[in-house]
């Protein structure tokens, strides 16, 4: 049996958990699939697993776990591991998925492979996992049972099983100690965001060291406004204090997946590309025809961005007419 931790928002199953379930099904290769859902809305979310080939959905939704508590989630996994003896436990490679499985690994003294993209089978299980935020892959063997692994986001397309029924819902009340609930969300501060969100923008106009200054971003903003785009930047820019870290694209910033990513004065370090390689197309504007970004970009314009970006804005305005 393979157990998968399913995350959900108010009863709606997360897409990344369906991706994890797809890899879990692959790993189970015919063995039963079970799911674990914790927190408010877990029951509604379990019902959405019809068509996924999940036999049983274990649901823990009492009020103690209404607010997220990583220790309590991990304890719930451990309890099922002890009772059902799965061969593997799978989660999505999200903040919570990775966090909960790391807790389980610590509690059970087991190895844990984060952000896997493939399972090759064998004993010990061989997996492929992501390093450097996706710029490098690793084949690794996991010496431990059950095997604990999370699934790298957006690397395994979610599929379903034709005609599979909804899982049998099995409510359970995990035995939780005080220490399992010591770390729990105490409050939530809502922030109102304005403008186009970087992670979801269709077009991103991004600037690097080549923009030269905080003021230099004015022309990028102008172009972005015209395109309904979000403005992004490289780490050099945030380190210099020209833009806030929330604008940073890359391994330690935001991962973007627009239709077009315009990289202005960005060299194309692997850690930057890790954040924008999900873009359908990349356009590089760079004064150096040898810049590494040209090996990741689809299109390039060679020259000084402080001349090219305003020319582009003017041309777009002209093309649109008065």
């Amino acid at each position: 049996m393979v157990l998968t931790l399913i995350e959900h928002q108010d009863g709606n199953v997360d897409e990344l958990s369906l991706q994890a379930l797809t890899l879990a099904r692959n790993l189970a290769s015919g063995e039963p699939l079970h799911a674990l859902l914790v927190g408010d809305g877990a029951r509604e979310a379990a019902a959405q697993l019809a068509g996924q080939g999940v036999g049983s959905a274990h649901v823990a939704d009492d009020e103690r776990v209404a607010a997220y508590a990583p220790g309590a989630w991990a304890q719930s996994v451990v309890e099922l591991v002890e009772r059902l003896e799965p061969s593997a436990v799978v989660a999505a490679g999200t903040n919570r998925g990775n966090e909960v499985l790391a807790h389980v690994a610590a509690l059970r003294d087991l190895p844990f492979a984060a952000n896997c993209t493939e399972v090759a089978g064998g004993s010990p299980l061989t997996v492929t996992r992501v390093r450097w935020g996706g710029s490098l892959l690793e084949e690794a063997r996991i010496h431990g049972a059950p095997t604990l692994l999370s699934v790298a986001p957006h690397m395994v397309p979610a599929t379903d099983v034709n005609g599979a029924e909804a899982p049998a819902v099995e409510a359970f009340t995990p035995t939780l100690g005080e220490s399992d609930l010591l770390v729990q969300v105490a409050e939530h501060e809502s922030t109102v965001t304005t403008g186009v969100s970087l992670a979801e923008a269709k077009v991103v106009v991004s600037g690097g060291r080549g923009v030269g200054s905080a003021d230099g971003f004015g022309m990028l903003e102008e172009l972005a406004d015209l395109l309904g785009a979000a403005v992004g930047c490289s780490r050099v820019v945030t380190s210099a204090g020209w833009r806030p870290h929330t604008d940073q694209v890359g391994q330690t910033g935001t991962k973007v997946s627009p239709d077009l990513y315009i990289a202005c004065g960005i060299s194309g370090a692997t850690q930057h590309i890790a954040g924008c390689k999900g873009a359908k197309k990349i356009l590089a504007i760079n004064s150096d025809a040898e810049a590494p970004i040209l090996a990741s970009a689809d299109y390039a314009v060679i020259g000084d961005l402080s001349e090219i970006v305003p020319a582009l804005t003017a041309e777009l305005r002209k093309a649109r007419g008065p």
Binding site: T126, I293, L294, A297, I302, D304
Partner: peptide
């Protein structure tokens, strides 16, 4: 090691060649 690295693999996609649309404005 219990999470034993077997080998590293460079993912496909590294080493495209951008189409140059032009130089300057």
């Amino acid at each position: 090691p219990r999470l034993e690295m077997v080998r590293l693999v460079v993912p496909p996609g590294q080493g495209k060649q951008a189409e140059i649309l032009g130089r300057g404005p």
